[in-house]
Write a protein that binds this DNA or RNA. Structure first.
Lengths: 348, 348
DNA sequence: CTGAAAGCGCTAACAA
DNA sequence: TTGTTAGCGCTTTCAG
């Protein structure tokens, strides 16, 4: 037991211990032992292990994760990317994605991973994803939303295995996707509106994104099959511009059944309809999409197509973990659920 | 199972080049030169630099960031942590925080930083923050919300400089904080309600969090000075439980002026009031807090106290960058703004 | 302008 | 059980 540099009496513990070697010196052991002790490995004497751990705590020492991760080749980090392809200006993301992100972060945390968050605007570059997967910084990647970057994601998926993607399932695709059956959702919305007496439909939302296009097309197919007209009002998803666009478009829109691409749009539409004196659901009915928490708080509460965010987040993380350990994974396309509230009429 | 790493695509490609050394070998130079070339340093022959960069691109080579960061002692990573102290169960965070997070991520990205996101539930541990600051993984830390962890943050701030915090300014505090003048906001809300004729106030929201307590106390002071009663309805901020709590509390509440701790609560209250047949703003007026985008979309649109999220995010990042480069920074307490919409009455 | 060499701080295989 | 010895992959003096 030698403590020449560590006398609490003289000048206290000024020299900050920053490295394993530092701690090893004052503990009178080797760096290797300290490493094993701090990792709680079984092959160290319990007594010395405790001594070292106590010492570490006293000196507020924490091993440098960067070095540890480099050496062990496991980063414990998952990259989470939100590509903002179309909607370039929309820095403030959709609350749906934000909520999904939150839940993913929770799941990941519970599995002992840290999250490296990156929002990218692909613009003209095509290597935004490679830059992450090839960085050596992450053990895996979750992509939130395909935006208009389907091909980029596909090409990365060809050689990069530990990746899962929230979005739309396209037959034959390589990348592992988790998402909602948007076509089914679109169908449910249109059928519900028609069943409740709508005789002329409108779809509110831009269809640049692949998911929303699927909702639109399914609704359109239903409408056509029923011999009912459906017009497309390409309302922006950016919350800031939604209001004015709706104020411009709705007064001339004679549809009595509105299907909004998201709850946010629906909510905004509700307000505009009220302003121009159309009663919901008597004059016009409306169905949203997502079932965000606010959908139940609107007036009237919103009938909507629910996406299970919690399940989605869990699936994205579970599948990613499976892929990290070399397994292969299936896609997961969740069936959405029609949540009937008061923005559509009571069943006849 | 499956999954062959090498993509046998381009004309019988050899071993994947993974390291500087690999690339150096096929380029016929040393690793050092490759490093300099890829970093675009001026002290390499322009010609060899281009050759190496081309080679790197052809082989899809990207330097390992972990190693780079370890060596250079700059991680290019900022830790962003959301402590969930009170409200333990509330995994789905407040949309205000989520939006703030999004904007912070944007600002950070624009400054060339990556974001390491961590959500923590401090529970009984007190080292959740140290664990991040001492990890060697991040160049700095932003804490979103003090929750009930003021003391922990203070104690870390004593020895860890590159940190900024969103939250409430307490006189004499050490940690650099950016936030809103909550007391002023509370005062504005109460004064506005009273000026528009309210004669009995209620505050909706739990006051465990220091920011919300400040709003409450300021409102209370105003009410007292005006000789007007103010009751406190401790509504949970978790969106899921808000509705039922309000449905239980509001029918018995005779206040004609409601001040909600957040727009979300206000929105929920709006719905409940409508349900129980009280007209807003004729029977009862209501003021929210935050001015989230949805505040303008409620029915009636919500009068609220606006917090400038964008400015806050920018300030958090700017100050953090200053602190990273060794400077000292002042606190920033933004004055909130009263946004008058239709949930309060017209001026007499 | 380029190569050689010395680490960044940690882990793990191999000895002792 | 512990110490010793190599590196993880990169950057950066220091020579040449």
């Amino acid at each position: 037991m030698k403590n020449n540099e560590n006398h609490p009496g003289k000048n206290g513990e000024q020299q900050k211990v920053r490295t394993l070697a530092d701690l090893a010196r004052i503990a009178g052991v080797s760096a290797g032992t300290v490493s094993r002790a701090l990792a709680g490995k079984s092959l160290v004497n319990a007594e010395t292990r405790d001594r070292i751990q106590t010492l570490a705590r006293e000196h507020g020492f924490r091993p440098n994760q960067m070095a540890s991760k480099l050496r062990s080749q496991k980063t414990g980090l998952i990259g989470v990317v939100i590509p903002l392809g179309h909607e370039k200006r929309q820095h403030v993301s959709d609350p749906f994605f934000l909520t999904l992100l939150g839940q993913i972060a929770d799941e990941l945390t519970e599995s002992g991973y840290d999250v490296m968050l990156r929002r990218v605007i692909p613009d003209d570059t095509t290597d935004w994803l490679e830059r992450l997967t090839g960085s050596g910084m992450v053990d895996g990647v979750i992509v939130i939303g395909q935006s208009d970057q389907f091909d980029v994601i596909e090409s990365v998926a060809e050689h990069y295995h530990p990746m899962t993607v929230w979005g739309h399932r396209t037959p034959g695709q390589t990348h592992c996707v988790v998402g909602t059956d948007n076509a089914l959702g679109g169908r449910m919305a249109a059928e519900h509106l028609i069943a409740r007496g709508a005789r002329s439909l409108a779809f509110l939302g831009v269809t640049t994104g692949i998911e929303i296009r699927a909702r639109y097309e399914a609704a359109k197919a239903v409408a056509e099959a029923a011999g009912i007209p459906l017009v497309h009002l390409p309302i922006d998803l950016a919350a800031a511009t939604m209001g004015p666009q709706l104020e411009a478009a709705l007064p001339d829109c004679k549809a009595d059944g509105l299907f909004a691409a998201s709850d946010l749009i629906a909510m905004s539409a509700l307000r505009v309809l009220h302003q121009i004196g159309r009663k919901v659901p008597d004059d016009v009915q409306i169905v949203g999409f997502d079932d965000l928490l606010l959908a139940s708080q609107t007036m009237p509460p919103l009938t909507t197509i629910r996406q299970e965010i919690g399940l989605g987040a869990k699936a994205l993380v579970d599948k990613l973990k499976a892929r990290i350990s070399g397994e292969d994974t299936d896609h997961l396309v969740n069936a959405p659920q029609l949540i009937v509230r008061e923005s559509t009429r009571k069943a006849a």
